[in-house]
Design a protein around this nucleic acid. Structure first.
Lengths: 193, 193
DNA sequence: ATATTTTATCTAATCAGATTAGTTTTGTCA
DNA sequence: TGACAAAACTAATCTGATTAGATAAAATAT
């Protein structure tokens, strides 16, 4: 019998497909091993535990999201850049519902690694925001508010919490619009509280 | 040996304490049964399964949150009411981190019951918003944007995703302020898109 | 009051999934 | 080629949810 030649990346890719297809709650070592054509204990050659694997999967997700959002900002500035980044965020997360779920639930304990995985993203956001000349504190506030909105919006969409026929994209754009307006309020206030 | 006399409510109360104290991921039937002075199979007299229990716990959480937020709106209107409600939301969720976690993760499948559990809350919000004379669509957009912000903000706080010294309450208030401003933009526009 | 029914609880057993121990096989490199 | 490290396997263990069946307390009916 010839060796399959697993690597962390192959495993993570497979795990991502599973969670996106059948949901995060149905990812078990057995299911994953079956898909890879291997017995479940073999996975322990690549990860120390299921929780280890999920953590890696979470970071894998953040890195991909980071990439997509950074791409979206290329060649754009100010409102255009922000709108484009927000749209990229929404698109990615809607394509990867299961993965996004894992990204949510598995950064409980972790800090160092999550921060590392998203530092490029945060840096990009900061660069885009620098065009608005926000005070230091307001920049922090702004990033937090945007992140909260994005995070919450996707979460609620994912959980079908908007039991209504009004377009998901429309509300999203209205939300981004409101935030952008708020951003202008604080533009050039160098000494904001 | 005398019977303990468990009820769903007693069990849920206990479960809430557990998740708030030691985290949602550590709630097992064994831990819960131990706390209640009973063997774990006994819990099956009150719930059909762990997942059943978690669903009930989730609804229990939403009902409590609903109560707190509705309380906060009493005797207030417009911006005051909204600020107060948002603050109540933040306070409740920060007091009940574990419970909030369950509230998040266990409304995947459910719909009818979750909707029932939060209908009073939504109704209250609608009443407060009615003072702004929003168009029908904008009312929906607005509610969605507020919910998203709240949901996301608490989530990020809970997961220590704001790795920064700037005050959690300040950013929250800035966020609410921005949303309220956005709300005014659309006030009295009866034929909004 | 007593008999009957219901049901909360128990113990013992089963099942599924993660994990560990120990073995075999394969690939690599001196 | 031979030796070593790594990848995979089988078999066994452990934990936690769940089921089956028994017991006894409480509730209800006679």
């Amino acid at each position: 019998m010839s060796r399959i030649g697993l690597t962390k990346d192959i495993i993570l890719q497979s795990a991502m497909e599973i969670v996106d297809n059948i949901g995060a709650e149905n990812l078990t070592l057995k299911v994953l091993a079956d898909k890879l054509g291997v017995r479940s204990p073999s996975l322990y050659n690549h990860f120390n535990s299921l929780s280890d694997l999920l953590t890696a999967l979470m970071l894998y997700g953040w890195k991909q999201l980071e990439y997509r959002v950074m791409q979206a900002a290329i060649g754009k500035s100010k409102d255009d850049a922000i709108k484009s980044m927000c749209a990229a965020y929404l698109n990615f997360t809607l394509e990867h519902l299961g993965l996004f779920n894992i990204m949510q639930s598995y950064n409980q304990h972790i800090s160092q690694e999550t921060i590392a995985a998203t530092s490029g993203l945060i840096e990009t956001i900061r660069q885009v925001l620098s065009a608005y000349n926000l005070s230091e504190k307001y920049e922090v506030h702004t990033i937090r508010v945007f992140r909260s909105f994005l995070q919450g919006y996707v979460y609620l969409v994912q959980h079908d919490s908007f039991g209504n026929s009004v377009s998901i994209r429309d509300s999203f754009n209205v939300g981004v619009g409101i935030l952008l307006k708020g951003l202008k309020e604080n533009e050039n206030i160098k000494l904001g509280k």
